[in-house]
Design a binder for these strands. Structure first.
Lengths: 342, 342
DNA sequence: GTGAAAGCGCTAACAT
DNA sequence: ATGTTAGCGCTTTCAC
């Protein structure tokens, strides 16, 4: 059975398509009898207006596109969850895409989405894109087409609404916490050294050190990529100096560090303290449970969605409010992987 | 700057819309000079054909809809990842929705998606839907409209392609593993007792017990819901009998059980063995690392997507291949939460 | 080599 | 109260 259209219904009652349309939409112009007959028939045949046609007509489709770099990262899943929640409440659907940290895939996706498919875009940049600053595609979209909200991994070059984490403060705050619990030799391990986020956290880390007049030692900083062996790098680090604290810049990294330390018989937190990022289930259930920086992923998603939808629905207005960047403060969730405050 | 359309381009060169269309699509009918001029202009102005219009024309939009019950569950994230991977390879996009285990939200989403928005659907039923067997909406879609693939939480009432886990065997296999490592009093803790998946695993559990002539004791079965306090229920269980093995029917449940046991000073696996489901990061990094049943989520997603896309692309053919149900076998990933085989 | 016209499914302004 | 027409943006016959 083929899908039923207005035309079919109209034909069945020998009326015009517009009459059928009005009847189904309950217009006052149509006689009650006919309206009832048509509506009943439509229901029975499971008639549904074709969205594609409506979208073309309205130049809008109540859909927002989301691009995240990596869906296996719990932070992004939380954000997605927040976005979905708000979008759903406001009657929007989400078409979600994964860039896999690849500039090329991100570009293709952007290209696809920026062609009438969605009313707006929520994007966190791929690492490659951020590193190479190849945001021309984004800039074009901003200039010419649909509203866009950047979150977490953003770019200064793109002029649009943004929701970011206060990563500088997060790096500062966590490092300071180490210092306040008596740690002196604090290492930083980052899988995201090339992203804005990683850089800011690193700056915060340095700031906290310099406040206490602790000289920065670059051998205490371990930046690694997808193909590097964290185990080997950790060996080098641990042999370099008597480290007594390690800041892992994402959740899985912190968890892996914890495991490596335990395997080598370091006691956590007695010998070495560990702080991670993204307050997910992993951090909570590992032992000892990890002290982590919560970025409030769900909240970030909700904020981004709210901001975008507002922008979409005001896009017909003449006066556009200026773009704003919302900075979300992090919270330090203290658990068993750090020592007591002095 | 408004979005540019074919009409604009045609006007700019004082040609007809159809000429512009052909020029941009590189038709042989158009003179080389004009083609080049128009193409250059189009590129420069960032012209992109409007998808909505194309979709309406083609009655297809290279998009598949996915509905999962819960995105914070790692299994479903893995499936999503697998779906995205295959869809992306074949040039499809994904519009992903969350039913939040609610029949109502699932229905609304279905209603929305089944109106020309997507070419096909991949769905895992919400718990409520499965429990109440309210699959009429699904059946209608299958009968009348677009191809659909059900995965994991399926329904016999819906006649379509399916990808399921061999949950019966999984329950059987894990229980048998307990028995083979010398466990005698095996408890089962399930947050999904009302879903097909939970029921099958439960049946497998009973089968393994009966094979060894171990009488089934319903006090060893803990079914709990969203609002129940697992801690209290575990107390009751542990006080009931000297349990020496616990099968947790999803990842987070197994992890929580592990934590509760550790808190009460049970040694795992010496006093009590634990097996969980969904081989995610949590199971891997908890201590002791959990022995788990891997359902191969990513593979399931890939299979479902392949099956759906094939169905979509053959939908013009006259002869439709019969619907098939793919059963994916699980693997038991043995780690530290279970004893050695005898 | 170029253009006019039809049509995808629908709505809305404008007749009648 | 019902029908006609135009048009959303595009492709595709079919004329010229």
């Amino acid at each position: 059975m083929k899908k039923i259209t207005l035309k079919d219904i109209a034909a069945h009652f020998s009326v015009s398509v517009s009459t059928a349309s009005k009847a189904i939409n309950g217009s006052h112009e149509i006689s009650v009898g006919l309206k009832e007959k048509i509506q009943k028939y439509a229901k029975q045949k499971h008639y549904k207006p074709n969205r594609l046609a409506l979208n073309l007509l309205n130049k809008s489709n109540k859909t927002i596109g989301v691009i995240v770099p990596n869906i296996l990262n719990y932070f992004f899943v939380q954000v997605l969850y927040g976005i979905e929640k708000v979008a759903n409440e406001k009657g929007y659907n989400i078409i979600s895409c994964i860039s896999d940290e690849s500039f090329e895939k991100e570009s293709k996706t952007l290209e696809f989405l920026d062609s009438g498919t969605v009313d707006g875009l929520i994007v966190s940049l791929s690492e490659e894109t951020q590193q190479k600053k190849r945001v021309k595609a984004l800039m074009d979209i901003v200039d010419n087409h649909i509203p866009i909200v950047l979150f977490d991994r953003v770019s200064d070059l793109v002029n649009c609404d943004k929701v970011v984490v206060d990563d500088f403060e997060a790096g500062y705050k966590s490092t300071k916490y180490f210092l306040d619990t008596g740690c002196k030799t604090i290492a930083l391990v980052s899988p995201i050294s090339k992203s804005s986020v990683g850089k800011l956290r690193f700056e915060g880390y340095k700031k906290a050190l310099s406040e206490k007049y602790i000289p920065f030692d670059e051998n205490l900083v371990v930046n690694f990529g997808r193909n590097d062996d964290l185990d080997v790098l950790m060996s080098l680090l641990l042999n370099h100096a008597p480290v007594d604290a390690i800041l892992g810049l994402d959740e899985i990294t912190a968890v892996k560090i914890l495991q490596i330390l335990k395997l080598r018989r370091y006691r956590v937190p007695e010998d070495i303290s560990v702080i991670g990022f993204t307050n997910g289930q992993l951090s909570e259930f590992v032992s000892p449970a990890l002290t982590t920086v919560s970025q409030h992923g769900k909240y970030i998603g909700e904020s981004a969605a709210k901001q975008l939808i507002e922008r979409i629905e005001n896009s017909k207005e003449e006066t556009q409010s200026p773009f704003q960047t919302k900075v979300v403060k992090t919270s330090l969730v203290v658990r068993g992987s750090t020592r007591e405050l002095l």
